[in-house]
Each structure stands twice: as C-alpha cells, then as structure tokens.
Design a protein around this nucleic acid. Structure first.
Length: 788
DNA sequence: TTAGGGTTAG
C-alpha cells in the first residue's frame, strides 16, 4: 500500500493487524506503529496495536501505547490490555490493571471481567476472584454465559468446587464451552468419574463434543483408568475427522491416556503414526514410561527426542529425572541436571524438586541440600517434603525429623505428604514421644481420618513398641485399605504375636478386601517368629491356590527360615531347589542361619558357597559359618575361614545401637570407647558382670569374630553396641525407668542372655528392637519364643 | 479484545 504512494488509512491498518498476530511479527508491528505514531491516534487503531503487541509477546510496548491513550481510553482498551496480560501469562499485571480500573471507576465490559477472572483462576487468588464476582453482579454482566463459565473455572481452580458446581447448575443455556469447562474442572480436582458422567450428560442434552471436550475428558479415562472409554473416544475422534488426521493436542492426550492405562503398545503405535507431534507429545510418552517404572524406556525415548534435534522443555526434565532416580543412575542424572541449567529450567519449581529428589534417591544428599538451600525454593512445601523423604531414603531418620521441625518453625504449613514422609522416621528411631507429638499434630490438621496417614500411625506405634496403641488405632479406623491390614499384620509379626496375626489374617481374608503379597508376608513372618510350621505351610500353600499369588523371594526366605528353625533343614533345602525363582542372598542366608542353630556343617557349606557367589563383599555369612565350625570344635576350619576373610579384606557391617534419653538420641558403635562417659559405663558393666557370674553365667563367645584368646573375646562381647547403649541408659535414667534400645543388626545369643540377666539384676524392663523384631526383657525373662 | 484443552515434582 505504501508503493501506491499515500499513507495507509486506519481501515487498512486494522485489516493488516490479524496477519501480524498470526505470525507473531513484532518487527512488522513496530513498523506499522511507526507509520501511525505521528498522527492523532484513533482509539480503535490504538486498541488494535495494544492487542497486536501483546499477541507478539511484547506487553511492555503494549502498555506504553495503552498509557499514552490516557483520556481517550474506552472499555475496549482496558479489556484488550487485561486480556493481553493474560495471553502472556502475566496474571498479576492483569489483576493490578483490573484493580486500577476499579479505583478510577472505569466501567468494564464482559471481556475485561472474563480476562480478570481467568487471571484470578491461574493465580488461585480466591479473594480477587470473589471481588470480580461482586463487580460482575453490580455491573449486570453476571448473566452472560461466558462470565458464568469463567466464574466456574475460577472457583474450581481456587478449590471451591461446591461453588463451581452450583454456578454451573445455574447456567440456563449452557454452551459447549461451559460444559467443557465443568468437565475439565472435575478432571483437575481429581473427580474423573464425575467428569465422565457429565461428559455423557452433555451428549444426552444434545451437545456434540468438540475437540476441546475430548481433550478435556481423556485425562479422566487415564486417571480411572478406563481403557475402553478411552478407546471409544479415540474412535469418535477419528470418525469426526474425514482425513483421520489427529491434531496435536488430541493426539497427545490419546498417547498419554494409552500410556497411563498401561497399554504401551497402543501408545507407541499411535505416537509413531501421528503426523503432528510437538514436545508435549514426546513428554506424554516419556512420562508414561517413567510413571510406570519403565525407566530405561523413558530414557530411550528421551534420547530419540534429542536425536531428531527437538529441544526438551521443563516437563520433559520432570519426566526423565525420576527415571534416573529409579535406575540409581547418578551420572545420567547429573547430565540431566546439566541440561536443566543449559536450557534455563532451573527456576522451574517442578524441575528443581525433581532434581533434588533425583540426587537424594541416588544417594547424593549434599547435592540435594545445596539445591534445596537456594532460598527461593525454601518456601515450597514440596521441596521440604522432598528433602524429608530424601533423608529417610538414605536412612537419616533424625535429619528427616529435624527438617520437619525446621519446616514448621519457618512457618511452612506441612501437608498430608509431609506427615506421611516424616512418620516413618519416628518409627525407624522408635521415637515414641516424637511420634505422639506428630499424632496430635495430625489431629490438629484434621488428617487423622486420611487412610495413608492412619496406616503410617499404626506402623509408627508398632515400631515404637506400642502394639496396643497400634491396635486401638487400627480398630477405630473408619476406612481401611489393604495397607492398613498389612501394617497391622506386620506389627503383630514384629512383636511375635502369631495368634493375633493369624486371626487377623483370616479376618482380612473373610472381609472381601483383596489381599496382596504383603498380607501373606506379614502372616508368614508371624508364623516364623512363633515357630508355627504347620500354620505357615498352610498359609504358604493357600497363597498360590486360593489367591493365585506367586510367592516372591521374601516369601521363600521366610519359609526357609521357618522350616530351618524348626529343624526341618532337608525340607528347607528342597524348597530352595524347587522354587521357580533364582534364590537370592536372603533365601540362602536364612538357610545358613538355621544351619548355625542346628550345627549342620554340610548344609552350611552349601549355603555359604551360594552366598559368597551372590554377595562376595558381605562378611556376615563367613562369620556365621566360622561360628558353626567353632561350635562343633572344628577350630582349624574356623581359623582358616577367618584368615581367608582378612586376606580378601571383607568387612562386617558394624553393629550400632541407639537409645533416646530426654529427647536426644545417643548412638553407640561396636567397640567404641570414645564416649565421654565411657569410664563410668565400663565400671557399671563390670559390676553387672560380677553379679552375672554369681548367677552362673558363662559368656558364649561363638559369635565373636576375632581370632583371639578367650578372655579377650569376652571383652569384645562386652563392647557390643547394645551393651554400651544399655549401660549408658542405666547411668542416665531414674531407677525403674523402662529402657528402649534399637539395633541395626540382629542381637547375638550372648547379648540376648545378658540382657535377660541385666533386666533381673537392675529390675528394669528393657526393650530391644533389632533388625528382625522386638524383644521384651523383664525380670530375667524374654517375651520371644524363637530365640536360640 | 473474551471463557474450555494435551505433558509436570514430594
């Protein structure tokens, strides 16, 4: 038009603007702006420019044009600028502009109201949303379908589903957008069933779903999952497209649906056949694999994405980081972190938290901590929860608890996940006071009726030695899932309460709840602790016969242990030889333990041969066999084995015991003499030892590893970590106080006997939780029936 | 100038 000579008129410019928008041609927009800038700008042209600048991504210049309009601004100018901010995700700016219009008493039209509402929805700013709602009512734009639809979405995104539903029900003539908005609201608030029934209701109302409706309802099929409905939507989508070419969003939603329904072959075929794909489509496949635990596949697709030169986005990284964590692939994970930095996704919270989690799961806590300490993320509850879970994943239970406390002192409100993450730490440490405090906290937050939280509480109480509290809580739970039954069963097993466990097991079988492999493991391990061979065999058989559950390695290890302890070593060995899975170290270890108990050298050697193949670095098994040799007097063999161990540099995991005194944890490692109170502890122990000798106790040194003189062996026994912890506790608590010790390994035979005697001499109740179970010592007796 | 949509961390 310039070739023609004259300056372009307003109409030509207005006609040109939509094309500029379509191509996001910012430079062209500036040029047009330059042409009109010296003239008296008509509001209609200025509004067009504001819109075009926003669509080209430049809200700053758009705002300048808007500001320059000053007095000649009309309702459309305000609506355009607010909508422009929303278009560019500058929701706070949109809301501020809305508030400014209120201060200036400008009358806004329905477009401005709709845009402002969507900004309030995106920022989940309920107060703001409600004030826009009142404004809409005052100004009489409230009866508009678009305004009502925007209100429905705003309330849904602010978590006010009841209000959203009420408003939706009140819309007289619902259009397809209103229906789709409500379907989407149900999907996003985790109500897939409601979404699907609304989707069906809409069709009965005579409204034919469009592309957006289908894309909105597909995640509901994935969440349920309902593969058949997903497939029928796929057919519907193809039928309504004569060329059968799916658009990117619909293709992506379908890929995600198939992947989440576990139908990876369909997901892959569809994905490969899609004509239009973007990075989100790739993410759907990558995340589908990652969430199903198919980490290698996820990474494989990621590398394929890179090989075609497509750049990942932040969601891609959120998919691949957990895949690295799953594979414990720290190097790959660190490369992903590098990529996050390269592409500038560091400021994305999802990415940051996934990176923190990846490092923690791969055992690199310092890297997690460094990322976490970057202040900006310090305010996010998920970052805190990730850190708590990360500490727990690495066995740092006291760090997990400390982090939880720090979080509350920083005024970050813990949520359900925080509680579920920190409760296992209190169980791990048997930190009852902490556990009780958390329980009251749970009640205050109103989380007590939440099933996973309740399950954690049962587990915590039983691990803290309070089986009665665990039972009471379990019995009063309104809703239980299979996990509730499983943790209760495991609690009975941990406390050696086989009868209660077996009766609970038959209750759950009769209750109609579907039992799983862990239910069986709980029941079997209760039988193991009680030595109930017949019952255990029956349960093991019914696993396959009645529930079609294939026993896992853990079940076999448990059965071998049960049979072996009962002296049925041949049956145990033939079970190992006939099992369909390749026996692992736990299975052979159970046999070895039983061989020690019954001094069976022939079988012990078979077990050790297999163990040294499976776990060449683990010394514990060698110790057991050398103990068997020593026990039957084959000293030369015992010595040879120990010499071979020291040559190959095998190390035994050092024993460690903890005790809680006045809210502080004290840890003792075997042989540690560095404690400030060591002298007094030693003296106290010598006195106890003299008493024990008077009672006729002769130390059983067969569990001592070192090849030394008998007297020295006794000294080594005396430095076993549980004895250090017990003497420390005796020194630092009032007479008569109960003592609770936790140990990382199993208690040895002599420590077991000695603890019984100490409980009698000192008149204390002593509870020891070792890696296998609880031992209650009182007045010279121990509650457990299966110990030596 | 406007409302609904695909992938996302603990």
């Amino acid at each position: 038009m310039q070739v023609a000579g004259g300056a372009p008129d307003s109409v030509s410019i207005l006609n040109l603007l939509p094309a500029i928008c379509e191509y996001s041609a910012l430079l062209l927009c500036r040029e047009v702006h330059g042409l009109v800038i010296r003239r008296c700008l008509l509001a209609v042209v200025a509004n067009g420019l504001v819109d075009t600048y926003c669509k080209c991504g430049s809200t700053v210049v758009a705002r300048k044009v808007f500001d320059r309009l000053a007095g000649s601004r009309d309702g459309v100018s305000w609506g355009t600028m607010i909508a422009g901010y929303v278009y560019n995700s500058r929701y706070r700016d949109a809301l501020e502009l809305f508030q400014e219009s209120r201060r200036l008493n400008v009358k806004l039209n329905r477009v401005s109201v709709v845009s402002a509402l969507s900004a309030a929805a995106e920022t989940a700013d309920l107060d703001m949303g409600m004030s826009i709602h009142s404004y809409a009512v005052e100004e009489g734009v409230y009866f508009d379908v678009a305004v009502k639809t925007a209100l429905v979405t705003m309330y849904a995104k602010c978590g006010e589903m009841e209000k959203a539903e009420l408003l939706f029900d009140g819309i007289q003539k619902r259009d397809i957008i209103a229906w789709s908005a409500m379907v989407s609201a149900f999907v996003q608030t985790g109500c897939p069933r409601k979404a699907i029934s609304l989707f069906q209701e809409m069709q009965m109302d005579g409204i034919r779903p469009n592309r957006v409706t289908l894309v909105s309802v597909l995640p509901a099929c994935a969440d349920l999952p309902d593969l058949n409905l997903g497939k029928s939507i796929h057919c519907f989508a193809l039928k309504s497209k004569p060329d059968r070419v799916l658009d990117v969003s619909l293709g992506t939603a379908l890929v995600a649906m198939y992947a989440k329904c576990g139908s990876f072959r369909s997901a892959r075929t569809l994905f490969d056949g899609l004509l239009h794909k973007d990075v989100v489509t790739w993410n759907a496949l990558i995340n589908g694999y990652a969430q199903a635990g198919e980490a290698e596949k996820a990474l494989q697709v990621f590398h394929q994405l890179q090989s075609i030169g497509q750049h990942p986005d932040s969601c891609t990284m959120v998919g691949v980081l957990p895949a690295c964590a799953l594979l414990n692939a720290i190097r790959e994970g660190a490369c992903m972190h590098g990529m996050v930095i390269k592409y500038g996704f560091e400021s994305d919270l999802h990415v940051k938290n996934a990176t923190i989690d990846m490092y923690a799961k791969c055992g690199d806590l310092p890297s997690s901590e460094t990322l976490f300490l970057e202040t900006k993320f310090y305010e996010d509850v998920i970052s805190w929860n990730t850190m708590i879970a990360g500490y727990m994943h690495n066995g740092q239970a006291s760090e997990a608890i400390a982090t939880f406390h720090q979080m509350t002192s920083e005024n970050i409100e813990p949520n359900l996940v925080s509680v579920v993450s920190v409760l296992p730490a209190t169980g791990y440490l048997a930190a009852l006071k902490e556990g009780l405090a958390l329980h009251s906290y749970v009640i205050r937050l109103g989380f007590e009726s939440h099933v996973p939280v309740g399950n954690c509480l049962i587990d915590m109480y039983s691990k803290c030695g309070k089986l009665d509290y665990a039972c009471n809580f379990f019995n009063q739970m309104m809703y239980k899932d299979i996990v509730s039954w499983n943790v209760m069963l495991a609690g009975y097993a941990l406390h050696g309460e086989a009868e209660s466990a077996i009766s609970l097991f038959s209750q759950v079988r009769d209750s109609g709840i579907e039992v799983d492999a862990l239910t069986y493991l709980g029941a079997l391990s209760a039988c193991r602790h009680a030595g109930s061979v017949t019952e255990g065999k029956k349960i093991f058989e019914s696993m396959r016969n009645n529930h079609r559950l294939e026993p896992h390695l853990e079940h076999y290890a448990c059965m071998v242990d049960l049979l072996g302890r009962a002296g049925q070593l041949d049956d145990a060995l033939s079970l190992i030889y006939t099992m369909p899975l390749a026996p692992d170290a736990a299975v052979w270890g159970a046999l070895l333990g039983a061989c020690k108990m019954h001094s069976n050298i022939r079988m012990g050697e078979i077990a050790l041969e297999n163990l040294s193949r499976l776990e060449p670095g683990n010394a514990a098994q060698y110790v057991v066999l050398s103990n068997i040799y020593a026990h039957v007097g084959r000293w030369t063999d015992a010595r040879k084995l120990r010499a071979a161990m020291s040559l190959t540099g095998l190390n035994k995991t050092p024993g460690c015991s903890w005790v809680e005194i006045k809210n502080a944890y004290h840890a003792f490692i075997v042989g540690d003499q560095s404690h400030p109170q060591y002298e007094s502890m030693r003296n106290l122990w010598n006195d106890l030892q003299a008493e024990m000798e008077k009672m006729g106790h002769v130390p059983d040194t067969t569990s001592v590893l070192q090849n030394v003189e008998e007297e020295e062996k006794e000294f080594f026994l005396d430095t076993h970590s549980e004895r250090l912890a017990i003497s420390f506790a005796l020194l630092n608590t009032e007479a008569g106080t109960e003592i609770q010790i936790i140990k990382n390994l199993r208690v040895c035979g002599d420590c077991h006997t000695v603890t019984k005697l100490v409980s009698r001499i000192t008149n204390r109740r002593i509870i020891v939780r070792d890696s296998s179970r609880f031992h209650h010592f009182e007045n010279g007796i121990c509650s457990c029936r299966d110990f030596w």
